[in-house]
Design a protein around this nucleic acid. Structure first.
Lengths: 102, 102
DNA sequence: TCCATTTTTCGAGAATATATGAAATATTGA
DNA sequence: TCAATATTTCATATATTCTCGAAAAATGGA
């Protein structure tokens, strides 16, 4: 993962609504969750949630698929895994395992 | 780590200058690096770097100590470790190990 | 087709973030 | 004390982010 992608991912998750939405989607698993259901659980307006999901989607942290009238969103685990790997490898170098400054 | 701290940390790292500064500090190890040296390597103005370091410091991702005329900054590995742990546990639930959606 | 449901798009405004020049502060040594 | 070095603070201008109401678009069923 490149720095640019990492910052996009970090930015996407660095927001209450988006982080909460992503966590719910992770819990929901591959089956995902409808946008409306997400909005209800997070107590945010539909259009606000759409904005949040658009940003998460642009960061490739979620996918969207239509099912009837609903749009089902699901977490993209691979991207999250790549982001965590980047942070561990590039930001923690080989420092964290030994914890020299902890 | 609480959600609030996680978002503070994610926000702090979600910026080119700050992420680059943090990476340099991680590479520098516990010895840290002077603000001026960081500014030179990152090719940013001193006051811009101060702003970046202030945000990282507020997120408890770096520490500062004065050494003569210089101020030495160092990465706080413990906070970074806690942030990664939070992201792994709370955002990836138990999903990532099995990679059901990858 | 008509209507209800679900989600998205649009436009606007408030709030926040970012980078800057200039000035101020802290430290050292002559 | 004075000057040089290193960093921070301040005020500001620009840019971006965030949320919202209203309207539009997509879908399914009567």
């Amino acid at each position: 993962m490149e720095i640019k992608s990492a910052i996009t991912g970090l930015s996407a998750l660095a927001n209450d609504t988006r982080l909460a939405a992503f966590r719910l989607l992770v819990q929901a698993g591959p089956a995902g969750m409808a946008a409306g259901e997400l909005a209800r659980r997070l107590a945010v307006r539909p259009n606000t949630l759409t904005a949040a999901l658009t940003i998460l989607s642009h960061a490739e942290l979620v996918t969207a698929r239509r099912a009837g009238r609903s749009v089902i969103y699901a977490a993209r685990y691979e991207t999250m895994r790549a982001l965590l790997a980047f942070m561990t490898e590039n930001c923690c170098a080989n420092s964290l395992p030994d914890a020299p400054g902890a």
